[in-house]
């Protein structure tokens, strides 16, 4: 692996570093609060993994541009709303056209991977290509010539990042918050019952009891 390749995968190195750090803290720390902090770092690393996966350098937020809206859509499109129910995920791209776009994108992304990877040859797309992942998330909004609505909307500034990983991670963050809150609540109770939050001291007391 050349240095360039190595650096090209920088997002993964960060993720791995964070993950291992978090994991180490969970295992090595006796203090329950610190364990939970470690757990959080661990979870954050996964969130980073997802988000960096969906990010295209130079890509914008996936808001349906006005040029597409003017194509006979009365509805004002809403974008990337985020909530803690996973159901809403695919609905982000609201109009039928966008649904089709996504569809075509998925069907054709194999063939078009190369051209787009060349075009966006930085960041994750490239990384995936160079590691052995063929179907890396290449996020291009519109690509196929046969799409009626897409023709007019096809320009560079429409390059946007895949919103899905972000939305998924929103859910994961909610889960993370819930977990942390619950964990801290438990720690509060443990502290009230035992008078300490050092795990070995607690175990010592249990053994004595």
């Amino acid at each position: 692996m050349s240095t360039e390749q190595f650096l090209g995968l920088y997002n993964y190195w960060i993720v791995i570093f964070l993950m291992m750090t978090g994991f180490y803290i969970v295992i090595a720390r006796n203090n329950l609060v610190k364990t939970i902090i470690g757990l959080n770092i661990f979870q954050i690393s996964v969130i980073l993994l997802y988000v960096s996966m969906g990010k295209i350098s130079g890509g914008t937020a996936p808001i349906v541009p006005p040029s597409m809206v003017s194509h006979g859509h009365a509805d004002v499109p809403h974008v990337a709303h985020a909530d803690n129910h996973a159901d809403a995920r695919p609905h982000d791209l609201h109009s039928d056209e966008t649904k089709d776009l996504a569809h075509d994108h998925q069907d054709d992304h194999d063939n078009e991977h190369d051209s787009h990877a060349a075009q966006e040859s930085r960041g994750t797309a490239e990384d995936h290509k160079e590691t052995d992942s063929p179907d890396a998330l290449v996020n291009h909004p519109v690509s196929d010539s046969d799409h009626h609505a897409a023709d007019s909307a096809h320009d560079e500034q429409l390059t946007y990042s895949n919103p899905l990983p972000s939305v998924l991670m929103l859910t994961a963050i909610v889960v993370g918050i819930a977990t942390t809150a619950l964990a801290l609540a438990l720690i509060v109770r443990i502290r009230e019952d035992y008078g300490t939050i050092e795990e070995d001291e607690i175990l010592e007391m249990d053994r004595a009891a």
Binding site: L39, F42, T179, A183
Partner: peptide, 13 residues
């Protein structure tokens, strides 16, 4: 609570 916390940590991992 301690048992729940242990489960929580492992379960979350």
């Amino acid at each position: 609570p301690l048992a729940a916390l242990q489960y929580l940590i492992l379960g979350t991992i």
